[in-house]
């Protein structure tokens, strides 16, 4: 019984960290605690959070996905291209998401059937997908997208005053949270990450589980990319560069173990919030972007060190 409480306490770590940072920023900046800023902040983190949710699944199986930024770029460019050629916006979005799913599945297939280590496999596809984006866009941004209301809504819209990307993020969170906690698939994700061999011998098709987690991550990355495209009203071939790092940082800050089998999605949401709040707060405080990076890196390091200590 006692163990349970301690366990929960160590899970509270990321949340306590977030609260401390929020309080500090609240005191040092007048504009931090305005409704406007908070909604703005949530919208900013939605892109990283969506990618990081997928990354959580991947990391729980003991893998890693470095290609998320490139998948984001290719999916966005593809969607933008279709829009620019006058395709129905919803159909374009659907095809874009499907492309993300397929790119993720390719990662999964290389890793499981080709037996390539996830780090190497996705390092390679990161380059390949980025290259494909440059080829597809000819290295230039795609602009002149549709002026359809529904597409603009994705990145710029509001529902009852809440930015639409935030709503998408929350929906994705809720769905994925329940998948992880309450479905057979969720169980399999944890067990494959905890002990792949034992899982296979228990009748779990570990390969399929892995292919699915990369596919989900690919799709979520493109969803993030579509939000970005809609906001900017253009698709950049270099979009999403280095996004994998923020996503991995969010997962790790949330307390998910890089060796797999241990972790939770709520932690990732908190991790994404910490990163977002830091970015936002440091901007409000007019800290130079050079120093911002130092602060961000230090916070990540500190969080991980504290986490080790409590274990």
């Amino acid at each position: 019984m006692k163990k349970k409480i301690v366990n929960n306490l160590s899970q509270l770590g990321p949340l306590i960290g977030l609260i401390i940072i929020v309080i500090i920023l609240g005191f040092t900046s007048d504009s931090f605690f305005t409704m406007n800023n908070i909604l703005n902040l949530l919208r900013q983190i939605s892109i990283n959070a969506l990618i990081a949710f997928g990354m959580t699944f991947v990391i729980l199986t003991g893998g890693i996905d470095l290609s998320v930024g490139s998948i984001l770029a290719f999916g966005s460019a593809l969607t933008a291209g279709m829009l620019a050629s006058g395709m129905d916006p919803m159909l374009a979005v659907f095809i874009g998401l499907l492309a993300g799913l397929l790119m993720g599945a390719v990662n999964g297939l290389i890793i499981t059937k080709g037996k390539v280590a996830p780090f190497i496999a996705t390092l390679a596809t990161m380059t390949i997908f980025r290259g494909a984006t440059l080829v597809y866009t000819d290295g230039r941004p795609i602009t002149g997208l549709s002026d359809s209301f529904s597409f603009e809504m994705i990145g710029k819209g509001y529902v009852f005053g809440v930015p639409f990307p935030v709503i998408l993020m929350l929906i994705a969170f809720a769905v994925l949270f329940f998948i992880l906690r309450n479905t057979i698939f969720g169980r399999q994700v944890y067990s494959v990450g905890g002990n792949e061999e034992a899982s296979i011998l228990s009748g779990i098709r570990a390969d399929r589980v892995k292919i699915w987690v990369y596919s989900i991550t690919g799709m979520l990355s493109v969803l993030a990319g579509i939000i970005l495209t809609s906001r900017l009203n253009s698709a950049q071939p270099t979009a999403g560069t280095m996004y994998e790092l923020d996503a991995i940082a969010a997962v790790v800050l949330g307390g998910t173990s890089l060796t797999g089998g241990r972790g939770w999605l709520t932690g990732t949401l908190i991790g994404a919030l910490i990163i977002g709040v830091l970015d936002n707060g440091l901007n409000l405080l007019n800290v130079s972007s050079f120093y911002q990076q130092i602060v961000k890196g230090s916070v990540i390091l500190l969080a991980v060190l504290l986490d080790r200590r409590s274990k």
């Binding site: 944890y190 067990s191 905890g194 002990n195 034992a198 899982s199 011998l201």
Partner: peptide, 8 residues
């Protein structure tokens, strides 16, 4: 190695 997922 084959029977249990130890941290579950």
């Amino acid at each position: 190695d084959e029977g249990l997922v130890l941290n579950l």
